[in-house]
Write a protein that binds this DNA or RNA. Structure first.
Length: 413
DNA sequence: TGTCCACTGGAAGGGAGGGCTT
DNA sequence: AAGCCCTCCCTTCCAGTGGACA
C-alpha cells in the first residue's frame, strides 16, 4: 500500500460523508420538500388500498425533475410499511426500459410467480398467453396491486395503447385481486393517442406536478447537502447557484442535484476540502458535455455515420444542410467505412432520432421551388464529438477523412 | 393562380434473431 | 426439426405539402 498509485487519492479527505449516493436523483429522502400537497392527495387515493379496495387509476404529469418518480416511490415504501396484512403489491416499472407490450406483461406476471420453473420467459410466448398467466396468477389471492408505469408516454408512442387497454380492463376478469394503474408522464398530450375508453379509465384522477422555482430547489439542495457533506464543506452561495442554474432549466431538481454532486467531485479531485462557486460553474460545463458525449458514444453505428456526416459537412463550411446533403455525406462515409448503405428513408428517421436526442437541430422548411426538406444543424461541440465518434471501431478507418461532395447550398452561395 | 421541387412521414411488410412448443 | 411468437431494423411504396417562382 505504501507506494500504491492510489495512495494520494485515498489520503485526501473526502468532502462527502460516507454516502455520496444521497446526491443522486435515485435517492429517496425521508421527506420531500414542496411536494406535501401532492403527497397528501396521492396518499388519500392510495389509502383505499389499505382497506382492501381498489384505488382509482391516476395519471401524473410533470416535467423531468419535478419529483414524480421520487414521490411515487416514497409513497410506495410508505404504503408497504402501513400494510399490515401484506396484501398490497407495489410494482414500479420504467417504460423507457420496459418498452414493449410483451415486456410489460412479463414483468408484472413474474412478480406473482414463485417457482423459478414457472417464470415467464423474456421471449417465445404469445402476448395473449402471458396475459392469461398473469391474470390467473394474480387472481390466486385476495390482494391489491398498484402498478406504476413511469414514462408511460414512451410506451404509448412506441407500442400503442394495446397493453394499457388490457391492463385497464383486467379488473373485469379478476375475482379476488384488484389492480390500479398509476401513469407518470412528462408529456401532457400523449392521452390524445389513447383509445377513448382507455383514456377515461386511466385518468380517473389527474395530477400535475409544477416545476420547482429557485427557492424551492434551494431547499431541496440544502436538505440533501446537510445529509451528504461534512460541516463547512459548502456555503450558501454554492447551493443558491446550483438552484439558480437549474431553475433556468425549467426547475429540474435532478439537474440541480447533478450540479452539486459533480461540483463536489471536482473539488475533491483537485484536493480541496470545500466546494466553491467556481466548482459549480465547472460542473455545469462538465455535466452538459458529458451528457452529449455519452449520448454520442451510445449511438448505433449507422447513426454515428450520419452524425459524422453532418459534422464534417459543417466543418467544411456549409452551415445549413438539407436531408439530401446529409444523405450524400452519409453515403460517402458509409462507403468508406465499408458498412452497408441505408436508404434515404431510413436516414431521415435517424436524423429525427438525433434531433430528439438534442444532438442536432432539424426542422422542416420549405424552399419554394427548391423543395420541402429538413434544415439540419449540429448542436454538439465538434472537436470532442468527432473524437468520440472516431473511437468507434467501425468508424476508425475514416479518421481525419474529408468529404468530397459539395452541398447544394454551398454551390448556390 | 397554379406549378413543381425535394422531400416528409405513414403504412405495410420482410427477414433475422431471440426463444418456446410439439 | 418444424412451426410458432415477438421485436428490431430496415426497405419499398406513395400520397401529401409549403412556398418561391412563372
Amino acid at each position: 500500500m505504501e507506494d500504491s498509485v492510489f495512495k494520494p487519492y485515498l489520503q485526501t479527505k473526502s468532502v462527502f460523508k460516507e454516502d455520496r449516493d444521497i446526491l443522486r436523483p435515485s435517492y429517496i429522502p425521508e421527506n420531500l420538500p414542496h411536494r406535501e400537497k401532492q403527497i397528501d392527495q396521492l396518499a388519500s387515493i392510495l389509502a383505499t388500498a389499505l382497506r382492501g379496495e381498489r384505488p382509482s387509476n391516476v395519471l401524473i404529469f410533470g416535467k423531468t425533475g419535478t419529483g414524480k418518480t421520487a414521490v411515487i416511490k416514497y409513497l410506495g415504501n410508505e404504503i408497504l410499511k402501513a400494510d399490515e396484512w401484506e396484501r398490497i403489491h407495489f410494482i414500479y416499472m420504467n417504460c423507457e426500459i420496459v418498452d414493449t407490450p410483451y415486456a410489460v406483461l412479463q414483468n408484472i406476471g413474474n412478480r406473482f410467480v414463485q417457482d423459478f420453473d414457472e417464470r415467464i420467459p423474456f421471449t417465445g410466448w404469445s402476448t395473449e398467453r402471458v396475459y392469461n398467466i398473469l391474470r390467473e396468477k394474480m387472481d390466486e389471492e385476495r390482494r391489491v396491486v398498484v402498478i406504476v408505469l413511469d414514462e408511460i408516454d414512451k410506451l404509448v408512442y412506441k407500442s400503442g395503447d394495446d397493453v394499457l387497454y388490457h391492463l385497464s380492463k383486467i379488473n373485469d376478469d379478476l375475482e379476488k385481486a384488484k389492480i390500479s394503474l398509476i401513469g407518470l408522464s412528462n408529456d401532457l398530450k400523449f392521452t390524445e393517442f389513447l383509445d377513448p375508453r382507455v383514456k377515461s379509465r386511466l385518468g380517473d384522477e389527474k395530477m400535475v406536478f409544477p416545476p420547482y422555482n429557485a427557492n424551492e430547489l434551494r431547499d431541496i439542495l440544502q436538505q440533501r447537502a446537510e445529509l451528504a457533506f461534512e460541516n463547512g464543506v459548502i456555503n450558501g452561495g454554492v447551493v443558491s447557484l446550483c438552484a439558480a442554474l437549474a431553475a433556468q432549466e425549467h426547475g429540474d431538481a435532478r439537474r440541480a442535484l447533478d450540479l452539486l454532486r459533480v461540483a463536489a467531485e471536482l473539488a475533491e479531485r483537485s484536493g480541496c476540502d470545500r466546494i466553491t462557486e467556481q466548482d459549480v460553474r465547472r460542473a455545469k460545463n462538465k455535466v452538459e458535455l458529458d451528457c452529449v458525449l455519452e449520448a454520442t458514444r451510445s449511438l448505433p453505428t449507422q447513426s454515428k455515420l450520419v452524425l459524422l456526416g453532418i459534422i464534417l459537412s459543417e466543418e467544411r463550411g456549409s452551415k445549413r444542410l438539407t436531408t439530401g446533403d446529409v444523405y450524400s455525406a452519409y453515403k460517402e462515409l458509409a462507403r468508406r467505412a465499408g458498412t452497408g448503405i441505408l436508404t434515404q428513408r431510413r436516414v431521415t428517421d435517424l436524423i429525427s432520432e438525433l434531433d430528439m436526442l438534442g444532438l442536432v437541430n432539424a426542422r422542416v422548411k420549405s424552399f419554394g421551388r427548391g423543395g420541402r426538406t429538413k434544415e439540419i444543424q449540429s448542436s454538439v461541440p465538434m472537436l470532442e464529438t468527432k473524437k468520440v465518434l472516431e473511437k468507434d471501431e467501425v468508424l476508425s478507418g475514416i479518421k481525419n477523412y474529408r468529404l468530397k461532395f459539395q452541398t447544394t447550398l454551398l454551390v448556390h452561395e
